[in-house]
Design a protein around this nucleic acid. Structure first.
Length: 191
DNA sequence: TGAATGATGCACT
DNA sequence: GTGCATCATTCAC
């Protein structure tokens, strides 16, 4: 329900801006492949490589609305929290995650990766191969329809990039969906 | 309700 | 050594 587009060497906000490196190499490969990176030392973020082979480009998947597997998402969120925050009492973490409403389980890029159990080792996975555990699917017939129109605005957390890249409206979200990380486009969601 | 801050690993210069 | 495509907690009001 929320994504951001990142370009190649010309996009001053993109990991590909310095050219191919060990970290971003798959961004320059064929489309339909996962690119997962660690941000701020704590969270993994899922991207889908989108441009043709040889041209860097990817879409950051920032948020999702859980429709099924909600219990598995809570378990995965807890496992990730216990692993990454060993100083916090696991029992209190378990209570905190159990109390979260379903629409907050994947309401941000780090949270989404945690809810789906996605890690950096998933980089390079072919997301179009339905035989693999991690893959993309078309909507199911009984999925609820989108709740509102798609809106767009500047990408989040890229203040280091110069204009025009900083202000380019390459963030897209589903208006009215409660899982969007920043419904107003600026401040984090409060519910 | 909102601003400030700490946690934390690693890519990059 | 610097700074991050984040999140949860703390503190002020």
């Amino acid at each position: 329900v929320e994504v951001e587009a990142y370009g190649g060497q010309g996009d001053a906000a993109s990991h590909a801006r310095f050219g191919p490196t060990d970290r971003n190499r798959v961004m320059f490969g064929p489309p339909g492949v996962a690119y997962v990176y660690m941000v701020y030392g704590m969270y993994d973020c899922l991207n889908v490589v989108t441009d043709r082979d040889g041209v860097a480009g990817a879409v950051l998947v920032r948020a999702a609305t859980p429709l099924e597997g909600i219990g598995a998402m809570r378990a995965s969120r807890f496992a990730q929290a216990a692993r990454r925050r060993p100083s916090v009492d696991p029992r209190s973490e378990e209570r905190r995650i159990a109390a979260l409403p379903a629409h907050r389980l994947a309401s941000g890029p780090g949270l989404l990766a945690a809810a789906f159990g996605i890690e950096r080792s998933d980089t390079g996975v072919d997301l179009c191969d339905a035989r693999l555990a991690l893959h993309l699917e078309p909507p199911a017939d009984d999925d609820p329809p989108p709740v509102g129109p798609v809106r767009s605005g500047p990408r989040i957390g890229i203040g280091y990039a110069a204009e025009p890249w900083r202000g380019r409206p390459w963030r897209f979200w589903l208006a009215g969906d409660r899982s969007v990380s920043r419904p107003d486009g600026l401040r984090p969601a409060s519910r």
